[in-house]
């Protein structure tokens, strides 16, 4: 399969800061890729390099078979992280203008704009000025601006930020529909459940470097769960007996219940049976590894000190990156 995006040894620096460091990336046509990392990891810079909005100091970029996105701009849909519209422009005119810039000269363009607006719950807003719409509504308009020309490649930088759950679902369906149509999707996010719901492949970046580039299914199998969340049916049950089970490293108890930490190589399914045999559970659940944990594990080789790890955790918490689980 041909690559929709290909980055080879791409490096981009701003002064002394290395924003993207020796980055390799191949995204096949038709794929849905999630680009994940905390704030300042280099996601937006990488996307801008792909879009030829910025240019690499070294390395090669290929987009849709062209050596630069400039040559394929009409085939690319892009939603930047920082959203922007002409506030005084009417919604219909704005979409028409962007579509025209993307080379659409379809006589049915206005009809298509109406249909698309209706599909995201904004029917009848064509004549409204952009400044009259709410932030969430504007975001939908901007997303429509990215897909109005039926692109072959759709690049979305944090597409879900600021959207309510209903709109998030709407957008997710829109993205999947574009992918079904044949578009390659690359979107960046720091909210893992969204990536999990949509993408089939995850690229994780940290300090401008790629730390993970795997299929979601591979990640799931590779980072196997080692925590079982357990609530006994009898609140007064003595859970310390679980520590005596072979393969249990530790049992932590708090107000929400117990967390049984398994030793490496232990089969969680077997362990769950053994727990049930020991204490009757009210709830027994396999805890999926948190993204934060995976991320910390991946970059821990570079963050030697405890202080560095705490800083990293704080950074992750700030960007909501670590709240999700696989």
């Amino acid at each position: 399969m041909n690559a929709a995006i290909e980055l080879r040894k791409v490096t981009k620096t701003f002064g002394r800061t290395i924003a993207v460091d020796n980055f390799d990336l191949v995204i096949p046509q038709g794929g849905i890729y999630g680009f994940i990392g905390p704030n300042g990891a280099g996601k937006t810079t990488t996307i801008r390099l792909i879009m030829s909005i910025l240019f690499p100091d070294s390395g090669d970029v290929s987009v849709l078979g062209c050596p630069s996105a400039l040559e394929a701009k009409n085939r690319i849909g892009y939603l930047p992280e920082e959203r922007g519209v002409y506030r005084k422009m009417r919604v219909g005119d704005f979409l028409n203008y962007i579509a025209s810039l993307k080379g659409v000269s379809d006589s049915d363009l206005n009809k298509r704009i109406s249909v698309l607006l209706k599909s995201v719950g904004l029917g009848g807003t064509e004549r409204k000025k952009c400044e009259e719409l709410s932030k969430g509504m504007l975001q939908k308009v901007q997303i429509l601006a990215a897909i109005i020309h039926r692109p072959d490649l759709l690049i979305l930088d944090e597409p879900f930020s600021g959207l309510d759950p209903v709109s998030t679902r709407l957008l997710r369906d829109l993205i999947l529909e574009e992918n079904r149509r044949g578009a390659t999707i690359l979107f960046s996010t720091h909210v893992m459940p969204q990536a999990e719901e949509i993408c089939e492949h995850v690229i994780m970046v940290h300090q401008g470097r790629k730390v993970l580039d795997e299929k979601l299914s591979t990640i799931r199998s590779q980072y196997d769960p080692r925590i079982i969340e357990f609530n006994p049916l009898d609140p007064n049950a003595d859970v310390s007996v679980l520590t005596n089970l072979t393969g249990v490293d530790r049992v932590d108890r708090d107000d929400s219940g117990c967390k049984v930490l398994l030793a490496e190589g232990v089969n969680p399914a077997e362990m769950m049976h053994r727990i049930i045999d020991s204490i009757t559970p009210a709830r027994l659940e396999l805890s999926r590894p948190r993204l934060e944990d995976i991320f910390i594990r991946l970059v821990s080789a570079k963050t030697d000190s405890v202080e560095d790890r705490q800083k990293l955790r704080a950074n992750l918490a700030q960007s909501s990156f670590g709240e999700a689980s696989l």
């Binding site: 879009m51 909005i53 400039l70 701009k73 009409n74 690319i76 892009y78 930047p80 920082e82 959203r83 922007g84 519209v85 002409y86 506030r87 962007i98 810039l101 993307k102 901007q142 601006a145």
Partner: peptide, 16 residues
């Protein structure tokens, strides 16, 4: 105005 309203990045995705 176009820079501060961030619309310029949308334009840059379509034109040089």
């Amino acid at each position: 105005e176009e820079k501060s309203s961030r619309v310029v990045e949308v334009l840059l995705s379509a034109v040089s």
